[in-house]
Design a protein around this nucleic acid. Structure first.
Lengths: 164, 164
DNA sequence: ATGGATGCAAAGCGTTTGCATACAG
DNA sequence: CTGTATGCAAACGCTTTGCATCCAT
């Protein structure tokens, strides 16, 4: 469901990327287009390995892992995606284009990322930074703990009384 | 008799670590003691490489890199230190014992970490988490940007009048 | 035509681990 | 003594890179 794209947001991610590439005299190749399409197919968090896996499924145009790494780095520099966390020793990214600033709650059990928005936090941080003479350009806030689902005793049968 | 030590804070980090090790039937070896002493010698951020480097200086008791990694992991599990960021592809830690909750501003230029405390942010996050049914146990907030020093024009040494 | 891009494999790097030896309790 | 811990080096897993080939412009 993305026909509702707000018009304050420029064209497609691909178009936006093309512009960025132009400023660097880089080219919009089929591989890059394939990768960015895959990444923006759904608004979800991802890591390089996932993208490679998706593009390795039969029917998809395969792109080498090296190229995915190189393209992801470019997309990040272009401001289309951004690194949000590190999970399982891998960098995790999310879209940073056409989406409002938000932060995350990360479940320590299922590793799920829950997004939330809160204007107040940004404002406070902005104020704190200013007082310290720090030029704030952005931030990353992760709340750690246990998500609703994981906290709820999973169909709690009789659990073992103890274990050594 | 250091009665100045707040009594809500147990003895020394080493003592605290010894207790932790006991609960796991692990031993407080000379190496572990050397490492923890070095880490708590000053309240500053550090990474494994730095600790290894310090303990490699002549005069210091050398400890293998593998042991430092293993000990740092234990210290983290013991709650004595905690991971605060990732810089230069290395995990960066700080003391998490006897120090109040705080967050950081990270300079994109010099990589410096600036600490700050702000009660309000924690409160807001706590509220947000609760509304989402998330059991918050802690958080990590990094403000990104340019620090005061790096933002200041680099004392132009080629000033016309600066020919002393 | 031609300078940038891709794929492959090898290299890099921080971090982990197997194993023989060396200690703490 | 006995089960842990250490040191060393090899193994690992993610990410980067050199190079020959390929392609967008």
């Amino acid at each position: 469901m993305d026909e509702l794209t707000p018009n304050n947001v420029a064209a497609s991610p691909v178009e936006r990327f093309r512009e960025f590439l132009a400023t660097r005299s880089m080219r919009l190749t089929q591989e890059r287009e394939t990768i960015i399409s895959e990444i923006f197919a759904a608004h979800e968090h991802f890591d390089v390995d996932e993208i490679v896996a998706r593009l390795t499924r039969p029917g998809e145009k395969r792109v080498s892992r090296a190229t995915v790494y190189r393209t992801v780095k470019s997309l990040e520099e272009a401001g289309l995606i951004r690194k949000v966390a590190r999970s399982n020793d891998r960098d995790v990214y999310e879209h940073d284009y056409g989406y409002p600033q938000h932060d995350h709650l990360i479940c320590s059990k299922c590793e799920k990322l829950i997004e939330f928005q809160n204007e107040a936090i940004s404002e406070i941080l902005e104020k704190v930074a200013m007082e310290l003479g720090f030029r704030l350009s952005g931030h990353r806030l992760e709340g750690h703990g246990i998500c609703d689902a994981c906290a709820r005793p999973p169909s709690r049968r009789h659990r073992k009384l103890d274990m050594i």
